[in-house]
Design a protein around this nucleic acid. Structure first.
Lengths: 70, 70
DNA sequence: ACATTGTGTAACGTATACATTACAAAACGA
DNA sequence: TCGTTTTGTAATGTATACGTTACACAATGT
């Protein structure tokens, strides 16, 4: 079973949200700035819980923030 | 930041899908039966990748399988 | 010229998702 | 009544998400 590729739109949504900084995003969802960097760079995938937190922050359905690559 | 409670409808969807067994589900998404048991019992949350795999298997949007408790 | 802000890298540690193996027991059919 | 299927528990190991700390550097403002 090969890896499911998932990309996220965190960076775009962050800029659309009044240029929210990585630190501000981190604070709002309860993680560190390093984790935001790692997620934006696709170093790893967030947990389901964190994915929901981020989607809730941007007030978007989870699948509009995290999308399976076709 | 307190834990975000998330529940899943795996067990219900499994029965709706012609009473698919835990083993069959596990095989289809590339995990073990033990992991299916743990997820159905809420022992831990799936990774985002696994959550997408399961939603894809049931042909449902992810948020119809995994829901944040209100 | 200097401090501040925002983003990035790297090393290492901890928590947790998931695998593996083994065993138990209820449900069901032949 | 016996074997098979399905579900469950438990113990232990591995992979990975996330934290922590430290340092670097460009951009901006004073």
């Amino acid at each position: 079973m090969d890896k499911l590729l998932i990309h996220n739109r965190i960076r775009q949504l962050r800029f659309e949200a009044d240029e929210m900084t990585q630190q501000a995003l981190a604070d709002h969802v309860g993680i560190t700035r390093q984790t935001v960097i790692a997620l934006e760079q696709g170093k790893y995938y967030p947990s389901l819980e964190l994915a929901f937190r981020i989607a809730l922050l941007f007030a978007k359905p989870l699948e509009q923030v995290f999308q399976v690559d076709v």
